[in-house]
Design a protein around this nucleic acid. Sequence first.
RNA 1: GCCCGCAUCGUCUAGCGGUGAGGACACCACCCUUUCAAGGUGGUAACCGGGGUUCGACUCCCCGUGCGGGUACCA
Length: 477
Amino acid sequence: MPDARVRTRFAPSPTGALHFGSVRTALFAWLTARHAGGDIIVRIEDTDQERYIPGTEALILETLSWLGLDWNEGPEVGGPHDPYIQSLRIAIYREHANTLVAGGNAYWCTCTPARLAAMRDAQRAQSKPTRYDRRCLARQAEVAQERANGMAAVVRLLMPEGVTEWDDLVRGHVSFNNSDIDDQILLKSDGFPTYHLAVVVDDHLMEVSHVIRSDEWIPSTPKHLALYAAFGWDAPSFAHVPAVLGPDHQKLSKRRGARNVLEYGELGYLPSAIVNAIALLGWSSGDEQEVFTPEELCERFTLDRVNSAAAIFDPKRLDDLNGIHIRRMSTDELVEGLEFHLPGTSKETRRQLIPLLRERMVTLGDATRLCAPLLGEITLDADVEFPPKKVDQATAVAMIDACMAAIEAGGLEDQPALLEQLRAVGESRGVKARDAFRVLYVAVLGTAAGLPVIEAMAFLGKEKSLQRLREARARLG
RNA sequence: GCCCGCAUCGUCUAGCGGUGAGGACACCACCCUUUCAAGGUGGUAACCGGGGUUCGACUCCCCGUGCGGGUACCA
């Protein structure tokens, strides 16, 4: 059954970095392929010379790699259908456009952009749909002459009569009246194909079985189906996945704050958490599991459980998932992952810090802030009350004195005993341990929130701990 | 203007004619607790509106409304 092999593709255009919307589409295509044990192709759709932004294809590939969305064929890895960059395949599209013209399924058109604009304005003024009026179709001999004289020309699809319908894998049955569909330009006057021609030719040549793309392509699908029919090719299955919206309910776009996914990596978000979070944007497992490893997603994901409504991305959800994924990391993985966020630290240092950090990070980047008092000097913030609320001066002094005395006597060697000893000091004076300990937090860490203080002192060592306690003691007068 | 689509807590969603409308995030409270977290328990919170169909509608149909998308020699 070689024909049943699932082959999907992700076809970004190099017009900017990837955001959650585009990555989500890529993820669904990847999951569909991986779930079925099939292939995924990456293909760069750079047929628009105007919008091309140099360097972005490298950025896109880096993003996919970082997320763990590997591809079987495409840039960098090659494959049987090389090249996977459309600007390198121009001859193929031109040849196919000619075939369509020869078969009467497409025609040349020399109408100027100005005429087309005027035509549309007139149609709109009459409340009519704006579609090409086929002026050139009726005068092909003349058009041929004009072309010979060097006039700019395009190839248009001759949209057939009738109705186009398909069973979309996420939308269900979809149907269009062909009379509502324009005669799409297939070949531009600069010789480049439009998306519509290139995508159909490439998906067919590359044997793509499932076209998974964002739902803004739904109105174009009848054009694509008409092309498959004109070429005499079998059409692939289509799955149009809903858009991802920003907090403003607008479609995610580079403008308006849609961040490059790679930036999340720098902030300390994990690829597995991002993958988990965006998979949940439109897909659900059907049971109540919501935390998934990429492997689990590959196993569980199917397109028929993809929702058809647009989803708003919620950064809070990503934070939650990221914390969970961090807590599931092994110590070795954290030692590795924290290197970037705790620059200049040794593996051994990070290994010691991890037990204190693990439950307290939303992102790996939080380690920088949390560890600052341990890796450098503390900063005294005027907003921090000292002694803290609910603790009188005398008790604060007592806590610090007791702590210094205990540490002098080797108290850091036995942390549970030290804890009990200090707790007793506060309680003997009628102050709750939770309040009394704040004195030590501020003294040692400079703040009443953060890493656990006894463990922190153990990390700092006897001398440094004593020094901070002494300085705090002096501030109490 | 003209086409198309979507519609359950603030957010992501489950639901596929009969449910006390379930879960997760966020939020609130309490518990645990050396701070902060993490963890535990509980709570607030939703079927866009109007007509049908049906013994019975969140579920099916129609209309409206709202939102999204398309309408380019962009993808």
